[in-house]
């Protein structure tokens, strides 16, 4: 197997597994709440239904509204194909480092917010305003935890960071623990999960992400929903990559890739299960408590930085 083919497998895998991951979470949540749930395949069925449906668009929707689903989808997919999931060194992983990856997702968000404003409903503007505000507040925490990670690896390239973690002997790193907690908190916020936003709500006053895409229908909506699912899987893979890359293969041979695939599925499923448990046991935060949550994430990542300097370099 060449590394290019693994690259393609990996990207397609992220794309195809994303709805399954979303289905997995909702099934876990259903079981935790003593319901049967709609099954793991439900998001796939939803997408298929949406793709078949007709697109209805407001009279004065501009090209921004029309092309946003494609921009959001491709930017997210591009980001997803950069993240190594199975193979440590894929051809595209050099295209963008972690910072560029975050920026690609920011590009998607920018257009999504613009599309929210395009129709001129109060909901769209509200969603755009909230989404941009909260994601802006999440940014420093995100960067700070990347900073902590890059301190020991001396790099922001995912491949180098993963190799560094794989090659260094096992040790307890308080700084990494802090960075991971912060990163998970930010991932929850970025993906609009509980306690920041509820992906299943359509209650006007509390929604953020859904408010921006209210006016979408048909295949456009399908693309946006799919992009959101890919983003969730992308963040899970990123966290797995950065903090527990064990099992990822350096050579593109069949056994290595197969083992990596199995382990990746186990690790991601574990992470998603934890997310489901948290979502079940927590209530959504009041809107103006979100900044406090995000500044908490920043403080934790900053503590990670300080403890790196105090405890890990000082010796």
């Amino acid at each position: 197997m060449s590394s290019a083919s693994v690259q393609i497998i990996q990207a397609v895998m992220l794309l195809l597994f994303a709805p399954l991951a979303a289905g997995f979470i909702s099934t876990c949540k259903a079981r935790l709440q003593n319901r049967r749930g709609a099954g793991v395949l439900q998001p796939w069925r939803n997408l298929r239904k949406l793709f078949k449906k007709e697109v209805v668009m407001a009279h004065h929707a501009s090209w921004v509204f029309r092309f946003t689903p494609y921009i959001v989808f491709t930017a997210t997919l591009m980001a997803a194909s950069v993240v190594p999931a199975l193979l440590v060194d894929t051809p595209l992983s050099l295209t963008a480092d972690v910072i560029a990856l975050v920026a690609l997702l920011a590009l998607a968000r920018f257009f999504l917010a613009l599309a929210g404003m395009d129709i001129g409903t109060a909901f769209g503007g509200m969603g755009a305003s909230r989404e941009m505000t909260f994601s802006a507040l999440a940014e420093p925490a995100m960067l700070m935890s990347i900073f902590v990670l890059s301190l020991s690896a001396h790099s922001t390239n995912l491949t180098t960071m993963i190799t560094h973690t794989l090659n260094s002997p096992f040790a307890l790193h308080p700084s990494l623990a802090f960075a991971m907690v912060a990163m998970v908190m930010i991932a929850v916020a970025e993906n609009g999960r509980i306690p920041i936003d509820n992906p299943t709500t359509h209650l006007e006053l509390t929604m953020i992400h859904e408010a921006m895409i209210l006016e979408y229908s048909g295949r456009h909506l399908a693309l946006l929903e799919w992009a959101a699912m890919v983003k969730l899987l992308l963040f899970s893979t990123l966290i797995v990559d950065l903090f527990m890359p064990w099992g990822m293969t350096a050579q593109a041979d069949l056994t290595g890739v197969a083992i990596a695939l199995g382990l990746w599925m186990v690790k991601v499923a574990g992470l998603l299960f934890v997310l489901a448990v948290f979502e079940t046991s927590m209530a959504k935060l009041r809107l103006f408590e979100v900044p406090e949550y995000l500044s908490g994430a920043f403080v934790i990542s900053f503590l990670g930085l300080l403890s790196y300097y105090m405890l890990e370099v000082g010796a």
Binding site: P174, L306, S307, L311, E312
Partner: peptide, 8 residues
């Protein structure tokens, strides 16, 4: 060290 970090 880990406990110290947790203390903080």
């Amino acid at each position: 060290d880990g406990f110290a970090a947790l203390m903080l």
